[in-house]
Design a protein around this nucleic acid. Structure first.
Lengths: 322, 322
DNA sequence: ACGGGTAAGTTATACGTAACACCATCGAGG
DNA sequence: CCTCGATGGTGTTACGTATAACTTACCCGT
């Protein structure tokens, strides 16, 4: 309607008419039909965010950041997958109810992304794609947004080494995602360069319970006990702390523990977790910004890397003598 | 297209033609245009979920449950508000990008709901509305889905009283939401009926830090010290545990602590929290089911109340003598 | 005074789908 | 043999918006 025109075409409609239309619209409770508008314009101002699970606070924060800048630009965000999992939806058109203008995907949900890319009903084919936490130069991605996890891991190891730790074990998430591969490589590199340092690794899932079990294995393995456990995320770290105590040891006096993420959990446990704070909402925000730029035709910088900071709290200290 | 017709009008199109259309569609990569379909049908198979913040695990789980049954029925779920907060969106049409078929709202986000109801651009006026965690019979709601929080609180107090506690303080969320009012009333009722029991109350926000401060106030107030702290959610409980220890006391030997929700956090802290498990995903799922029923014309049962269960873990024990 | 140019207003069309009405064909029964 | 019914296929229309194209009115300059 001319109301919309009135917003931009100041020269096409008189002030008086615009005012009249406005008041009439208000009176009748007129509301534009989104479906019709989308059909006419051929775009929906809606982006799809592909993440593994919102119940992981990290991804909830990614969503929050993405939704914030989306809203600021008149965009909406819908989520995939439905927590059903990745399987085909019962109704072939249900995978993404809204037509989409673009896609933002976390590398931790690549299976989901593959699923919807392969699903002709999902309608993501040929859409601008921004990858989060993903190898720069990923195929098909217009841009990537990353965290400098290698630097984060380096900060962690440097911190522990500076405290005097030498026997350090990496409680590694056994998840086939680039972000964890980076942690593994960075840990190895940091430990390799140090004289007298011993780095071990214990694979685990991504939960408190898995962290507990992996840490128990690491601490009860034959040979000298590690004095520090570097965990791939805060859930694992919380589990590791529990394992330490169940073995009758103390955190951090006997074993130091570090995490990644800085979830709410990190300050809820005691002692509070020393962890690498990941600006998750910033990842989401940058991802959405990059997508918007791509949609506007501006080429976004193809690879954005965000700095991370080690937050030193209560779970790290110098190792006991011996 | 006839493909779609073929799905339901078996008598209208021959097997041969249906097959031909199908293969042609597959070959050309045909995908129906959602916007056009929505326009034609006048519905979008999309529901709006109004919650305060996804970074609270409770609401992430509500979303998960709602999205699960939505997906199963070919529906989508979009979230409001954008984390901007509740203020008017820069673009008057951006509040909800998708046209909506219905709304599910948590009573903890009533301000947001008021905002979008009052916002003519949001387009929720006259839409079927399901309220979660809300007073049964709420105005304008086709149905409500609730947790039996009164019973949960009763279970908590009964558990503590059975252990021998008499001086029990309620660390209450000072949030103007029905769900917390219920907890307050139930706590008062449970304590009132007991001879010799003393119930106090200390208001707090909804964070670990606020729980810590409220618990510190409760424990350092003049008069006999409470032996148990009943917290309105797990974040407050985690904070309360920290307060107890900072005062040189032990959990649970000196002070027992309970929470509500059973977040991931509950089993990450030590000792693990005794808490009332709230089936958040079930709340979301029932809410969506009720909305779907309302959209189908079936009147859903107006008020659904889900049972809750006290999960006894490590933060409660009998009080020390004295 | 007349024409050209600009500002304002009006009309027409297309977007892609679903539903309905209409048409063609064929078989069976009167 | 003709008609009626059933079955399969085709054509048309409307959903509500945005915009281009067209029309009208007015002002000003020559």
């Amino acid at each position: 309607m001319s109301l919309v025109l009135g917003d931009k075409w100041r020269g096409r409609v008189s002030q008086r008419t615009a005012q009249a239309v406005r008041s009439a619209a208000a009176e009748l409770g007129y509301r534009p039909n989104l479906a019709a508008r989308n059909l006419r314009l051929g775009r929906t101002r809606t982006a799809l965010l592909v993440v593994p699970a919102l119940t992981n606070d990290y991804f909830a924060r990614v969503y929050t950041g993405a939704a914030r800048v989306a809203a600021r630009n008149g965009f909406g965000v819908v989520l995939y997958p439905s927590p059903e999992g990745v399987g085909p939806a019962p109704d072939p058109f249900s995978s993404a109810r809204a037509a989409l203008d673009g896609v933002i995907a976390s590398s931790m949900a690549v299976e989901a992304l593959d699923a919807i890319s392969g699903d002709p009903a999902a309608g993501t084919a040929g859409l601008p794609l921004v990858m989060l936490d993903s190898e720069p130069g990923a195929a098909g991605a217009a841009a990537t947004v990353n965290l400098d996890l290698a630097d984060g891991m380096r900060q962690v190891v440097d911190h522990l080494v500076a405290l005097g730790h030498r026997r350090i074990t990496h409680i590694a998430a056994a998840v086939d995602s680039w972000t964890f591969q980076v942690r593994r490589d960075a840990f190895d590199a940091a430990v390799r360069g140090l004289s007298g340092a011993v780095g071990g690794r214990e694979p685990a899932g991504l939960s408190v319970e898995q962290g507990l079990q992996a840490a128990r294995r690491a601490l009860t393995a034959p040979g000298p006990r590690p004095t520090a456990l570097v965990c791939d995320d805060d859930l694992l770290a919380a589990g590791a702390c529990k394992a330490v105590r169940r073995l009758g040891l103390r955190v951090p006096e006997d074993v130091s523990v570090t995490g990644f993420d800085d979830l709410a959990l990190a300050t809820a446990v005691e002692p509070e977790l020393t962890t690498v704070r990941l600006p998750a909402d910033e990842v989401g925000a940058r991802g959405m910004a990059a997508l918007l730029a791509a949609l506007d035709g501006h080429a976004p910088e193809p690879a954005d890397v965000l700095p991370v900071h080690l937050t030193i709290r209560g779970t790290t200290t110098a190792p006991a003598e011996g």
